[in-house]
């Protein structure tokens, strides 16, 4: 298999681990995606070290996409220190469809294109489901 763009999910608490685990339940093992859960009381330097190790682990020479839980939060702020053009991109507000999007993306798209498609997938996948119920009544 061709090398793939790597991914690191970074979050407060255990959200990152659980998102990765949910995605793996759906599509199988994801060796090119890692999770870093930052404890509420973790030291910033320790958290930085963990993200750095995770980036190295999933990096295949095609770049790494960091996906963090919330813009403005500590996990995002620490992850943002690693942004580097063509090597590391960051998308915030990670949800399961975004992880699945990255998990199922292969091919030749570059890091910036993949980052954009993951961002768009995340936004597109949010529905106010009540507004769909009328349509769902039709089978």
């Amino acid at each position: 298999m061709n090398s793939r763009i790597g991914g690191v999910i970074v979050s407060h608490g255990q959200v990152a681990n659980e998102l990765l685990s949910a995605a793996e339940t759906v599509v199988g093992e994801l060796a090119h995606i890692a999770a870093v859960s930052i404890g509420w009381h973790d030291d910033v330097e320790a958290a930085k070290g963990e993200i750095e190790r995770a980036i190295k682990k999933v990096s295949n020479g095609r770049g790494v996409l960091l996906m963090t839980d919330m813009f403005g939060g500590t996990p995002t702020n620490i992850a943002a220190m690693f942004i580097k053009e063509k090597e590391v991109e960051l998308v915030t507000g990670v949800n399961l469809p975004m992880v699945l999007k990255l998990a199922t993306t292969d091919g030749d798209a570059n890091l910036a294109e993949v980052a954009k498609s993951v961002e768009e997938q995340g936004k597109q996948s949010i529905y106010r489901t009540g507004s769909l119920l009328e349509i769902h009544k039709t089978v």
């Binding site: 599509v27 469809p97 699945l100 199922t104 997938q121 769909l132 089978v139």
Partner: peptide, 13 residues
């Protein structure tokens, strides 16, 4: 496409 299939929103029946 997993996500494409999910967005069909198909249920039993």
């Amino acid at each position: 496409s997993i996500l494409g299939i999910l967005e069909l929103g198909a249920k039993q029946g």
